[in-house]
Design a protein around this nucleic acid. Structure first.
Length: 487
RNA sequence: GGCGGCGUAGCCAAGCGGUAAGGCGACGGCCUGCAAAGCCGUGAAUCCGGGGUUCGAAUCCCCGCGCCGCCUCCA
């Protein structure tokens, strides 16, 4: 079993072969910690989390680095605006991000290095680039000289002369070529700074990834990932710096995901059309958000809408309800399956497992994998309801399949692995707050209605049903109990 | 302008050369005290439009139309 994945370097789906199996080295560009994260950041983390899970499933020993940018212009501006120390600002948002990712079920990377803690490593690379004449000092700044790196543009498919024609020229620039980019910036008064051979200053944005990638993963890494918007200039510049300094290929597979859009437009801080991860986590179950993020192929844009999330919430509710009934299922009689009808289901389940895995291995098609998941869930539910004479063998088989389904999906997608009772408990407790009622009150009403129906007091029962319906509570009657959930 | 991508049922979305997965919603029958649920059943003559290649195209090629991303900070 091998993973195929789209490589931005070749613009093709390729079979993934790590440089030194079973080890896989993977570096993903994380956040700049100057504000709360939004759905786009969550998408990135969840997509690479699934990739990480798939690689581990395949038996690779993955070293996964996801960095935190904690020194740059936006951070300095924000800290100044709020009148706080920059480090306090970045620590606050780093912690918030990490907590949110944990709630989303994103596995912790092997390392989460911070830029500000790797200044010496960056300085070393810059020194090397200057020695090799790939960079030059200009008035306290250091710039990378793109003309001296012939392969510049190979990732983003651009050519130097074409880029030059469209570029804005700022006469105050200290650059020789307008496309040169800063490796080191001299400090202005009031800015945080570090000592360097070129005076007090701070690193440019791109150099941190080269430095931390080199330190934790080595000169040539297997996978480097991030959003499509990072292809140029960020990843292009990383290649130039890293390959310029080491003389070795920097990355074997560049993996980029599509962006979140809102009404077709990119979600971004500047457009103001963003929803924060925190807002969504308060409003929806983490698995709902995860499943929503995985409901479209990772390379395509994903349009955010509240309806989209609510649709996924309904789908997951139904799935967990299936799980609930299977867990509670009791055999009507002992013995084997009549006409081996369970065998047919087990064959479908076997096909499901194969298809599910195949979807993920073919360029991480999580949308298709989810489709198979819903489909087999429907089959299990249908089997449970279709026959009134389930045998002990069949009930046992259903429970075994359910356990396997949850394990597989949980391990690879991080979705639908919860205990159904826990899932609905979490959801009821979370949503009850908006209803102005307590759980006890609702449960009492439901019990009262259940009794009323038993006594054929339909007038009372229907009155309670109406009352609950107005609260957005859905009821489902069976002989033994009334199952309920809040819309 | 350069580079990249998208357009599939009411909405979301897979499929990327062999005859349209899945989710949400909708509808009909049975069942039920009624409803929800359940059971049985119903959805794309067709994949933005027009040409072409092919025995065969949503899938490949060409030309349009519409939308988006990158080219400045951005996941």
């Amino acid at each position: 079993m091998k993973l195929s994945i789209y490589n931005t370097l070749t613009r093709k789906v390729e079979v993934f072969e790590p440089l030194n199996p079973p080890r896989v080295t993977m570096y993903v560009c994380g956040i700049t910690a100057y504000d709360s994260s939004h759905l786009g950041h969550a998408r990135s983390a969840v997509i690479f989390d699934v990739l990480y899970r798939v690689l581990k499933f395949l038996g690779y020993e993955v070293i996964y680095v996801r960095n935190i940018t904690d020194i740059d212009d936006k951070i300095i501006n924000r800290a100044n605006k709020e009148g706080i120390f920059w480090k306090d600002l970045t620590e606050k948002y780093t912690k918030e991000y990490q907590e949110e990712m944990e709630r989303l079920g994103v596995l912790k990377p092997s390392f989460e290095p911070k830029a500000s803690e790797h200044i010496p490593e960056m300085i070393e690379i810059i020194k090397k680039l200057i020695e090799k004449k790939l960079a030059y000092v200009s008035n306290g700044d250091v710039y990378f000289c793109v003309e001296r790196f012939p392969e510049y543009g190979k990732l983003s498919g651009r050519k130097l002369d074409e880029m030059l024609s469209g570029v804005r020229i700022d006469p105050s620039e200290k650059k020789r070529n307008p496309l040169d980019f800063a490796l080191w910036k001299s400090a202005k008064p009031g800015e945080p700074y570090w000592e360097s051979p070129w005076g007090y200053g701070r690193p440019g944005w791109h150099i941190e990834c080269s430095a931390m990638s080199l330190k934790y993963l080595g000169e040539t890494i297997d996978i480097h990932g991030g959003g499509l918007d990072l292809i140029f200039p960020h990843h292009e510049n990383e290649i130039a710096q890293s390959e310029g300094a080491t003389g070795k290929p920097f990355v074997r597979y560049f993996i980029h995901h599509g962006l979140i859009t809102v009404d077709g437009e990119k979600m971004s801080k500047s457009l103001g059309n963003f929803v924060t991860t925190g807002y969504l986590l308060d409003k929806y179950h983490p698995e709902v958000i995860r499943a929503f993020l995985l409901s479209k192929h990772y390379r395509s844009p994903l349009d955010y809408s509240e309806k989209g999330i609510v649709d996924m919430e309904k789908a997951l509710y139904r799935m967990y309800e299936t799980f609930y009934w299977i867990k509670k299922a009791k055999a009507k009689k002992e013995g084997h399956s009549p006409k081996e009808r369970i065998k047919e289901l087990q064959e479908k389940f076997q096909t499901f497992k194969e298809n599910f895995l195949k979807a993920l291995l073919e360029d991480l098609n999580t949308a298709q994998a989810l489709g198979y998941l819903f489909s087999i869930e429907g089959e299990l539910y249908n089997f449970l309801n279709k026959y009134g004479d389930l045998t002990s063998e069949e009930v046992e088989a259903l429970k075994v399949m359910l356990a396997e389904l949850q394990r597989l999906s949980g391990e690879l997608l991080g979705v639908s692995h919860s205990d159904p009772l826990e899932f609905f408990k979490y959801e009821r407790e979370r949503k009850i707050k908006n209803l102005g009622k307590t759980l006890e009150e609702i449960e009492k009403l439901i019990e009262k209605r259940f009794q009323a129906r038993k006594e054929k007091n339909f007038e009372l029962a229907d009155k309670i049903r109406e009352e609950l319906k107005n609260l957005g509570i859905h009821l489902k009657d069976t002989k033994e109990e009334t199952f309920w959930y809040i819309e």
